[in-house]
Amino acid sequence: MNADQWLHAFAAELHHDRVAPEDIRHVVAEAATHLRDGGGDPWTVFGPPDRYAAVIAESVGTRPAPRPGPVLLHAEGITKRYGRRTVLRDAGLTVRAGQIAAVIGANGCGKSTFLRICAGLASPDRGQVTLAGRLAYCPQQGGTADFLLPDEHFVLVGAGRGMTRSTARRAGRATARQLGWESADPVPARQLSGGTRQKLNLTLSTLNEPDILLLDEPYQGFDRGSYVNFWDQLLRLRDAGRAIVVVTHLLNQLDRVDLVLDLTPAVPGGRPCTG
């Protein structure tokens, strides 16, 4: 992990610890100048990012966790069969504004199907989904047009809500930058690396400022720095009051989320992870 990656991880941890954004900017900038002045391995100078972030959080104080807002997504009794195989049985999930829910489970247990049903892109055999707010969906792959440039994607998606070209381009580039990607280069989507295309995919889903964000394993092909940026972004969106559902197979990320829905067949329905 080089200094930049350490700083990214550190910033993400501070976000996670709910340190005020203003303080985060200062503390991270100060640590960066210190590393630049003194050289040195951040792991020796400051220690592991999570531990140092915890110490800083204790020193500067943290914001109280915002009380989760109103329910934005409520799915109940979702049952889906493909032929004689039941992939989802009575699955349910309730996500409030300001919460991140993780959908986990073995391969083929219906994670993507559940998400598509929540997005209204597929029909369940039984069950209901109630949405209070605008929804965006980031598919696992294929949510982009091979021969369009990133800017053209922004314009196309932005126009859906009446954004002008320049507004859409600006918003897209700003979001991309938060994911550590400078998207202004005129490169068609097909020539982007897998990870960068996923960043495009992700940028498109947040472009219209949705209230509810559904993400289907959105970080495939991300390197470590991008991955940290991704969670950083997700926590920012959560703190801005979005309801986020993310399909994941990376269980070590579960401590960052507020709810877990395990779709492994042995566990019917959902179980809340924390209060």
Binding site: L121, L135, A136, G143, A145, D146, G160, G162, L204, N208
Partner: peptide, 15 residues
């Protein structure tokens, strides 16, 4: 064919 995967997203984006 190429737009098949993109269209659901555009639909959700307000089209």
């Amino acid at each position: 064919g190429a737009a098949r995967d993109l269209e659901p997203r555009l639909r959700l984006a307000g089209y």
